Amino acid sequence: MDFSSKIGVFDSGLGGISVLHTIHDLMPKEDLIYFGDSLHNPYGTKSKEEITERCIEICDFFMAQDVKAIVIACNTATSACVNLLRDKYPIDIIGMEPALKVACEKGEHQKIAVWATNLTLKEKKFARLMERFEDEHTIYKIPCPKLVELVETEKLQNTDLVYAALHEYLHQTQGEEIDSIVLGCTHFVFYKERLQDMLPSSIQLIDGNYGTAHHLKDILTHKNLLNDSTGTIEWHNTDADKINLSKRLLKQLEGTL
């Protein structure tokens, strides 16, 4: 492993492409490997043990590629096993968690809806995060499994289905003067523009993608591991049929589709 080694980025499926996009935008000279586990998606309804088994298999694959860092571009996988993975592998492993802290720092007595998967919201990791802020702020936990499914089944362009799902989850805090919605799953970033059109400007949408990418850059900078190559992206997925969709989703985020 040296500065020219690649960075591994993985997710339960296609949501992590939103993180891949942010990393590529922030560090365009880094060579990236994206691994989507769409064959075993969704992680949000699986047991912690099942998710851990999948993550170890993916990280073993990355280690065989001699990557210099691994990004768990999945809040659910991070919740399930990030500490175990950090103990197991001798490289930096960057995880993600819902950006609740960022939302709470917007002001006093914030009302915040956290949209995430069932497992993320039930895990001790998020419970500990909530404990830091729930005395001062009002926090609503909203599991949103349909938003993962619509990305994975290539239905983002189905306006009726998308808006029906968004309205369903927005309805769960209807009547409350929400200050922000934390998009606590990387799949949900694909709905950001639609949500901005649906919501009043007073409600902020917050995700952890930039913070994760910036943290990765800080680590690589500190260790003199920043690359100066052309910035390639290598694609892998346990469901090979999803690779072309993966590339289209990245182009969509880049505004080139």
Rank of each mutant, 00 (worst) to 15 (best):
D25H: 14
E149V: 03
P28K: 03
M27I: 11
C74W: 10
T117G: 00
A113T: 03
L249C: 01
I94N: 09
M198S: 05
H21P: 03
D11S: 12
T78N: 03
K101S: 01
L183S: 02
K6T: 09
L183H: 03
L225S: 11
F35W: 15
L20T: 04
K48I: 11
L226Y: 04
N158A: 02
T52F: 10
T78I: 02
I91K: 08
A103T: 09
N244R: 15
E108L: 14
L121N: 00
R194M: 13
L20P: 02
R132H: 08
K251G: 04
K141G: 07
L250W: 03
K88W: 05
A77Q: 10
N237C: 03
A165M: 08
I243K: 06
T221P: 14
G208C: 05
M198Y: 05
G175Y: 01
H137P: 14
D207W: 06
E108I: 11
Q204W: 01
D2I: 13
Q65C: 01
A69Y: 14
E49K: 10
D37L: 15
H215F: 05
C144R: 13
H214E: 13
K29E: 08
A64D: 07
S5Q: 15
V114K: 12
P200M: 02
N227A: 11
T22C: 09
H21T: 00
H109F: 15
S79T: 10
L84E: 14
K146V: 02
W235K: 06
T232C: 04
A240T: 15
K192N: 13
W235C: 06
C104F: 09
T52I: 09
T78H: 02
F3R: 15
L166C: 10
P200L: 05
G36K: 14
A240H: 15
R128D: 11
L156T: 09
N118V: 12
T78D: 04
K6C: 13
M63G: 07
D66R: 13
A69D: 13
T186M: 00
L216P: 08
C81E: 01
I56V: 12
S79C: 14
Q110V: 01
K68L: 00
E50G: 02
V102D: 11
M1S: 15
N158P: 00
E108N: 12
Y140H: 02
Q204K: 14
E176N: 10
V82H: 01
I33G: 07
P90L: 02
L14F: 08
K46R: 06
P200F: 08
D60P: 06
K122H: 05
Y210Q: 11
P28W: 02
F35Q: 08
